[in-house]
Design a protein around this nucleic acid. Structure first.
Length: 647
RNA sequence: GCCGAUGUAGCUCAGAGGUAGAGCGUUUCCUUGGUAAGGAAGAGGUCACGGGUUCAAUUCCCGUCAUUGGCUCCA
C-alpha cells in the first residue's frame, strides 16, 4: 500500500500502481467525469499513469489552468493529426497551449494555408475527437525517437530531440498520429466537444527571424459547446469596443496615408478629450511638485551621441534632418530625457534643491517596423506624459512612493480598479550587462521593493528584466472585460546622469551625481486613450467626454429655446450640439444614444412654458424636468466628484 | 522587416472578364413630432496606385502603398 496526500491534507491509502483516475473515481463520480490530468508530487501526469510510491496528488479539471492547458494541448495534437490526414507530408514544429487556446507551428512545404481552410480542418478535428481516441504515452530512447522522425523527414522534431536528455523522451500516440511530447494529455479526445480555429500567422522557427518561417494556426477548444459560444461572444464584445472602430464612429482621431502610417491625427473631439486628460494630469502634477518644461521636437545628433541612443538606435531609426549649409544633423526626438538633462545642467543645484521634477507632454517619434503598427496603441508619433525626476540617491524611495501615489490616483480617477505591477530587477548572474555601481543598483532595487511594499502593491518580481541603465516598476491594468494592458512605468536611470555629467553640490561642498527617475503614468497619451476607449466602450466619464449633452427640440418651433439653453450651458464650459434635423423625437433619441452622449436634453412646448429642460441620461434613465441652472449644477457636481489629488 | 488576409460611395459591405450595387449617412421636399429608426426624391465611385495578359480588366497575373491577424523588435 502507498499513501496519497490530497490537497486538503487528507491521506488515502491505495494499492501500489493505482492511477490518479482510479483515485478520482474513489472520491466522486463528478470528479471522475471532469478530471483531465493530475499533478503527482508537483509533476504533471496523465491520469492512467500508475503511481508507485507515496505521493502528493492534485487532480486538475477544466476549472484550473493546468487542466485547461492540458485540454488545449491535447486539442493541438488532434489538430496535428487532422492536418497530417488532410495535408500529407506536413512537418510539425511546436504545438503548445497558450493563455487562451493553443497553436501549432507547421511547415506545409510552401503550400499556403488560409482561414478558408479552417472549416475543413475543424470538421476533421471534430471527427477525430468524437472517435474517443486515447493519448498513449510511451517512453522512447533518443535513438528510437530520432529514427522515427528521421523516417518521417521532420527536421524540426529532430532538432528538438537533439536538445533532450536520454531517458526524458516520451512519445504520445492518438489514433494514427504520434508526436514527441512530454505530456500530459486528457484521458480521451471525446472530452473535446467544441473546437474553433481562430487565425493563421507566420512564425519563425524557434522565434529566430533568420530561420524558416512556419505557418502557425491558432485555435481554442472547450468541453462544452456553450463555453465556445460564450468565448466567441467575448471576442465579439472586444471587437465592438475596438478603439479603432469607436475612434472613427465618435470622430476622435484619424490616419492618413499621405501624412504617413502610424501618425495619428486628433480630430476636434479627440483633441478635447486628450486636452482634458492632460489638464487633469497637469493639475495633479503641479500639486505633486512637478515643474512644467517645454522642449523642441528635434535635437542635434551630438545630443544623442552623448546620451548613447545614437549608438544603439541611430541606424535603425528615422534618419537625421540635415541643415542645407552647415551640414548639421538633427533627429526627431525619440524621447524627452536628453533634452531634460540639458535643462538640468543649465543651472547649478544644491543638495537642498533636489529633487527637481521636470514634466512635459512631449511628442516623440520613433521608427516602428511597419508590421508592428496598430491603431493608437502602436504608432510612430506619440505624446508621452513624461517627467524626469533628478534626485539624490537617498531620496529614491520617497520619490518612488510619490510617483506610485500619483499613478494610483490617476488609475482610481479613471476607473481602473484592478491592476498589477511588475518590478524588473537585474539578472544577478550577469551584473556586467548593467551600467552603474553595484551599490547603487542594490539601493535602487531595495527602494523600489520597499516603496511597493509600503504602498501594498500586488507585485511580481522579475529578475533580468531591468533595462541596462536601471531597475523599473511597470503598471498593468485590467480593463472592464478582463484584458490586461501595460500602461505606466517608473524607471531608475544611472546612465544618463553619468553621460550628461549631471551634478549637485552636496553638504560636503563637493560635486555629487544625482539619480534620475523616468516616469509616465499613462505611458503615451495615444495608447492610454486607446485603452480608455476600450475600457469604457466609448462611454467616457462626464468630465472627459468631448461633449456632455445633445439638445433635442421636439420640433422646429423650439429651436430658439434650444439655442438659449445651449448658450447658457456654454458659459459654464458644458457643451454639446443641437439636433436640428426634421426628424421624430424617437429617431433623435436613438441617434443620440448610439453616439454615446452622456445626457439628452429634450425641449418642447412643456419646457418652454415652464422654462425648464427634460433630461434623459445615456442608457435610458429619465431624470425628469429641471431648470437649466439645476442641470448645470448637476453636471458640475458630477465633474467635481472625481477625486482631487492631495485634497 | 517577415508570413497570411484585405483594399469597391463619407461609413459598413455585396458583386461579376463586357467600365458598378445595397444599407446607413448626406442634400432637397413633405411631415412639426414627447423618450431607441416617419415618408419621398436626388447627389455621390479613375472599384488603393503602377504595370502586364486580353478585342475588352474594377474583376486574372506581377509590383508598390496602406490596412489587418500573427512573428520579430521596442529608448
Amino acid at each position: 500500500m502507498i499513501k496519497i496526500t490530497l490537497p486538503d491534507g487528507n491521506i488515502k491509502e491505495v494499492n501500489k500502481g493505482t492511477t490518479s483516475l482510479e483515485i478520482a473515481i474513489s472520491i466522486s463520480d463528478g470528479l471522475a467525469r471532469n478530471v483531465l490530468c493530475a499533478s503527482v508530487n508537483g509533476e504533471l501526469w496523465d491520469l492512467d499513469r500508475p503511481i508507485h510510491e507515496d505521493s502528493s496528488l492534485k487532480l486538475h479539471t477544466w476549472s484550473d489552468s493546468e487542466g485547461k492547458k492540458c485540454f488545449w494541448h491535447s486539442t493541438a495534437h488532434i489538430m496535428a493529426e487532422a492536418l497530417e490526414e488532410l495535408y500529407p507530408g506536413v512537418k510539425f514544429g511546436i504545438g503548445p497551449a497558450i493563455e487562451n487556446g493553443f497553436y501549432y507551428d507547421i511547415d506545409l512545404n510552401g503550400k499556403i494555408l488560409s482561414s478558408d481552410n479552417f472549416s475543413k480542418i475543424e470538421s476533421k478535428m471534430k471527427e477525430l475527437s468524437s472517435m474517443k481516441l486515447k493519448f498513449e504515452r510511451k517512453k522512447v530512447s533518443k535513438k528510437q525517437a530520432y529514427s522515427y522522425f528521421e523516417a518521417k523527414g521532420d527536421e524540426y522534431k529532430l532538432e528538438l530531440i537533439e536538445n533532450l536528455n536520454e531517458g526524458d523522451i516520451t512519445f504520445y500516440t492518438q489514433g494514427n498520429f504520434t508526436d514527441l511530447c512530454k505530456g500530459p494529455h486528457i484521458p480521451s479526445s471525446e472530452k473535446i466537444k467544441a473546437i474553433k480555429l481562430l487565425n493563421v500567422a507566420g512564425a519563425y522557427w524557434r522565434g529566430d527571424e533568420n530561420r524558416k518561417q512556419l505557418t502557425r494556426i491558432y485555435g481554442i477548444s472547450f468541453p462544452k459547446q456553450k463555453e465556445l459560444i460564450n468565448y466567441l461572444d467575448f471576442l465579439e464584445q472586444a471587437k465592438k469596443r475596438d478603439h479603432r472602430k469607436i475612434g472613427k464612429e465618435m470622430e476622435l482621431f484619424t490616419f492618413s496615408q499621405k501624412v504617413g502610417q502610424g501618425l495619428p491625427m486628433w480630430l476636434p473631439k479627440g483633441t478635447k478629450l486628450k486636452e482634458k486628460l492632460e489638464n487633469f494630469l497637469k493639475e495633479a502634477q503641479e500639486k505633486a511638485g512637478y515643474l512644467p518644461v517645454t522642449t523642441p521636437h528635434i535635437g542635434n545628433k551630438e545630443l544623442y551621441i552623448q546620451s548613447g541612443h545614437y549608438d544603439k538606435y541611430g541606424e535603425d531609426s528615422f534618419q537625421p534632418i540635415k541643415t542645407p549649409n552647415d551640414g548639421e544633423e538633427f533627429f526627431l526626438k525619440p524621447m524627452n530625457c536628453p533634452h531634460h538633462c540639458e535643462i538640468y545642467v543649465s543651472k547649478q543645484y544644491s543638495y537642498k534643491d533636489l529633487p527637481i521634477r521636470l514634466a512635459e507632454f512631449g511628442t516623440v517619434y520613433r521608427y516602428e517596423q511597419s508590421g508592428e503598427l496598430h491603431g493608437l496603441t502602436r504608432v510612430r508619433g506619440f505624446t508621452q506624459d513624461d517627467a524626469h525626476i533628478f534626485a539624490r540617491p537617498d531620496q529614491l524611495k520617497e520619490e518612488f512612493i510619490n510617483v506610485i501615489d500619483l499613478v494610483l490616483f490617476i488609475f482610481n480617477a479613471l476607473g481602473f480598479t484592478e491592476f498589477k505591477t511588475q518590478i524588473s530587477l537585474r539578472d544577478k548572474e550577469n551584473k556586467e550587462k548593467y551600467i552603474g555601481s553595484d551599490d547603487n543598483w542594490e539601493k535602487a532595487e531595495q527602494a523600489i521593493i520597499e516603496a511597493s511594499k509600503e504602498k501594498k502593491l500586488d507585485t511580481v518580481v522579475e529578475y533580468g528584466e531591468a533595462a541596462f541603465y536601471g531597475p523599473k516598476l511597470d503598471f498593468m491594468v485590467k480593463d472592464a472585460i478582463g484584458r490586461e494592458w501595460q500602461l505606466g512605468t517608473i524607471q531608475v536611470d544611472y546612465n544618463l546622469p553619468e553621460r550628461f555629467e549631471l551634478e549637485y553640490i552636496g553638504p560636503d561642498n563637493k560635486k555629487h551625481r544625482p539619480v534620475m527617475i523616468h516616469r509616465a503614468p499613462f505611458g503615451s497619451m495615444e495608447r492610454f486613450i486607446a485603452v480608455l476607449i476600450e475600457h469604457c466602450n466609448g462611454n467616457f466619464p462626464i468630465w472627459l467626454a468631448p461633449e456632455q449633452f445633445i439638445i433635442l427640440p421636439i420640433s422646429e418651433k423650439y429651436h430658439d429655446y434650444a439655442e438659449k439653453v445651449l448658450s447658457f450651458l456654454k458659459k459654464y464650459d458644458i457643451c454639446g450640439p443641437i439636433d436640428r434635423r426634421a426628424e421624430t423625437t424617437g429617431r433623435k433619441i436613438r441617434d443620440a444614444e448610439v453616439s454615446k452622449l452622456p445626457y439628452i436634453i429634450i425641449v418642447g412646448e412643456k419646457e418652454v412654458e415652464r422654462d425648464v429642460i427634460t433630461i434623459r441620461k445615456h442608457g435610458g434613465e429619465d431624470l425628469g424636468s429641471m431648470s437649466v441652472d439645476a442641470f448645470k449644477n448637476l453636471i458640475k457636481k458630477e465633474i467635481r466628484s472625481i477625486i482631487k489629488f492631495n485634497n
